[in-house]
Design a protein around this nucleic acid. Structure first.
Lengths: 280, 280
DNA sequence: TCCTATTTGTAATTTAATTAAATACTGGGC
DNA sequence: GCCCAGTATTTAATTAAATTACAAATAGGA
């Protein structure tokens, strides 16, 4: 964890003087990086030694050490500042902005993903006799993409974007089935219905959706779709997609690791099955 | 420019003692961040004041200031170091690694994308009477995803993953048609064939594929798919997908900007068309 | 209300960094 | 080859910064 987050987190547990120091730093962290104990002490209206003590409380070995950590922490944050595209931006500018936005989205994901939840999902998927993937609208392409990655791991996997197919598939599911649901909002009526049907069939449900949504309530495991993050400027879910793709990436990675080295043979065979379709 | 690159760049212009200091720092920059002038001076076998002067030469106001800059510079670099997943990694570790890999991929894209090429592609797409998107195998989902984003901008857009449909569509194309081709390698025979047919029909061809591939040779505009970047460890194109998604994101952004504010109305209408399917 | 424990401040000390002056190089001219 | 000018570097001294040790104050509990 970066020192800045650590600082924010430990705010409640700080003493009066320490709290004032923390405040003084948080007002302008950039400036704090080049300040001396004396000047910071004057800013926070505390005595010099309090600064030293404050740093030790935060686990730094000295005030200079704290400044270094703070600098690191600022560098990694400012890197991911994402600014909205605005009319008049030229190509090189909106390219930068969109790449920044997507990197920031991944950074957001880093903070949100809970390893335990991923582990749970990986375990469910790995133990499945078959996997059914459902996605509609913007999530349909994602569902197919996930199918394309998962079938390689040797578990029978299908993706459906058609609500009727989804219903039938959900009804036909059983204990060995894991249903993977993609829905940005988690509020699409038909998706929730399908989830309920799958649940009644005793299938395991993994939802990549908005937490606190009705869909999340039905699922056994919920992974955030980053729905709350979406920049609404263009009304097309873009950064969210990057997040979901990366979640799929992570799940597949986890499953591949769980299977061990024998997976390599299968993956190689699949890859080489396309050789005949290529020209050199 | 970050201080670390600056340091490397100015190596040739440094004096003997300064060069030794620079070396000592570059051997282990992480350690240099927490060192004192005295200790660094001993390491570099120079006197203490040389350290101060060295910092001034580099444009820093003091040695502590230099350390802070160095810390920042390290933080932003190590951020994009991507390490391969290895057996035995636990969930929190492979999550970090995959997110890093994807962020690094985007960083790579930042260096590779040429604004002029994007501008050209955006212009071609914006002026099209219709857009046909082709992708097979792993690119099929991407093609559909692109279709889902592009149709919103008001230009008739379809995606085909079926080679026969692609051939027919390519044959039916004309001057007003832009064909968007997704192919990781650019060496799939049937894709190249389809591209040639589209070309004969006088359609404009944009290929998101490997540069220097046969497919790239046929296309009017080629954007790199990041094919050369792929980590082959797991034989599933993952980071490449993030790159391509981001390219689509950028193209759509460019098109939306080109259309101006009237696009907002359409996007809002499309968004609200789904309202009736949601529960609250 | 008093006592103890914790928090904060003051003064002294230690440590670190820089300045100023002196010395040692280096290369060009004789 | 030797001397001189200019630069590079060091030693010693100074200044600045951070921390320690100790004292005072404040807050909570009996």
């Amino acid at each position: 964890m970066t020192i800045l987050t650590h600082l924010k987190n430990s705010l409640p547990s700080l003493s009066k003087a320490e709290f004032r120091i923390a405040e003084a730093i948080l007002i302008d962290p950039e400036a704090a990086v080049n300040i001396t104990t004396a000047r910071l002490a004057r800013l926070a209206e505390v005595s010099d030694p309090m600064i030293s003590r404050f740093c030790h409380t935060l686990g730094c070995s000295s005030f200079p050490d704290f400044k270094v950590q703070l600098a690191k922490s600022l560098a990694s944050n400012t890197f991911f500042i994402s600014e909205a595209v605005s009319p008049g931006d030229d190509a090189s500018l909106y390219i930068e902005k969109r790449i920044n936005a997507n990197q920031a989205a991944l950074e957001y994901l880093r903070g949100k993903l809970q390893p335990e939840v991923i582990e749970q999902a990986v375990q469910l998927l790995s133990q499945s006799k078959r996997i059914e993937i459902f996605g509609m609208g913007g999530s349909a392409a994602i569902a197919h993409d996930a199918q394309h990655k998962l079938f390689r791991l040797g578990i029978p996997t299908v993706a459906y974007e058609d609500h009727l197919m989804q219903r039938m598939s959900a009804a036909a599911a059983n204990e060995g089935t894991t249903v993977l649901l993609f829905s940005f909002t988690g509020r699409t009526q038909s998706m929730i219905e399908v989830a309920r049907i799958a649940k009644e069939s005793k299938a395991s449900l993994i939802a990549i959706t908005s937490p606190n949504s009705p869909l999340a309530a039905v699922a056994d495991v919920t992974i955030t779709s980053g729905d709350e993050l979406e920049d609404t400027t263009l009304y097309v879910p873009m950064t969210t997609r990057i997040i979901i793709l990366t979640i799929i990436d992570i799940l597949v990675t986890g499953m591949a690791l769980a299977q061990g080295p024998e997976i390599d043979v299968r993956l190689k065979k699949i890859k080489h099955s396309l050789d005949a379709t290529k020209v050199n």
